[in-house]
Design a protein around this nucleic acid. Structure first.
Lengths: 151, 151
DNA sequence: TCAATTTGGTTTCGTAACGCAACCCTATTG
DNA sequence: CAATAGGGTTGCGTTACGAAACCAAATTGA
């Protein structure tokens, strides 16, 4: 049977995963955040098959995460750029990166050192915060009864 | 050829996606965060095939995201519980949920209303913050030269 | 002007993953 | 001792993925 898709799922996480939850999409977004814009650059940096890259880029454009710009410059004719929606994945990517750095550190790669352009100081780690800005663990929170629903 | 895996990738996002970046794993973690622990409950709530669920649970246990507990109670004999590593995905899941709520809102489901158990006040949205706690956009940050490497 | 190159794809084909249903084993319940 | 439930495993058909080949338009180079 067809692979299950979550377009109409009642769960927004499921719908989000439907857009960026496969093996490649979030890595494409990550590289787009690092500045990659052209087809061949994505292909070489990711080591992805061209047909898969083509399919993912098309789908990310369809979903409004990237937009495709025709730039008529010597041979490189299209660019894929992040939309506001795509840029909004920034906290997700940083959180995932921090999780990976913490639990699966690479021997030859230090943890992410993202810095504020204005001050050159490192950013804070991405956390769930309460109304006062104090970090919250999973066990510190609850979902009010009347808004439940995660199916 | 074999599906590409990222176990030895130099990029911690890629390695993270290798553990929780497929269609089902993060949804399983999500439901585990909501309290689901038993095989049949995951199966019914997610509508996932039993062999796939079996495979994902095994892999999540192998990767230290869940641990399998033998509980000798009437018929329900195993529980899959989040480890510290699994609970640490909390910011990732919340960030993804907020992204989904913002860009793909479901008509019949309001945005996530997570509240602090201590005060019953809603949490803040997950953001990337500078050292002073001010939110940062993707364009407000940079990676110092000597630590670069996202391949 | 005409071959070589670059970019952005599409096609073909073999393999791996997924979804469903059926079956299996153990432990409890009646 | 049959029925049921939890937790899998096995087959099988469909779909997705990966590699390489091929393609078309535009650019470069001689």
């Amino acid at each position: 049977m067809a692979r299950k898709r979550f377009d109409n799922s009642n769960c927004s996480v499921a719908r989000a995963l439907n857009e960026v939850g496969d093996w490649w999409s979030l890595l494409i977004v990550l590289h787009a955040m690092y500045g990659t814009r052209r087809f061949v650059d994505f292909q070489q940096q990711l080591g992805i098959a061209k047909n898969i890259l083509c399919d993912r880029l098309t789908r990310l454009v369809e979903n409004g995460v990237l937009h495709k710009v025709d730039v008529g410059e010597h041979g490189c004719r299209y660019e894929y750029r992040l939309t506001d929606k795509g840029r909004d994945l920034f906290p997700v990517v940083v959180a995932l990166r921090q999780w990976g750095d913490k639990w699966n550190p690479a021997p030859e790669q230090g943890p992410l050192d993202l810095r504020d352009k204005a001050t050159s100081r490192p950013i804070r780690s991405v956390q769930v915060l309460d109304a006062d800005g104090n970090p919250l663990d999973l066990r510190d929170v609850f979902v009010p009864e009347h808004t439940e629903g995660h199916g």
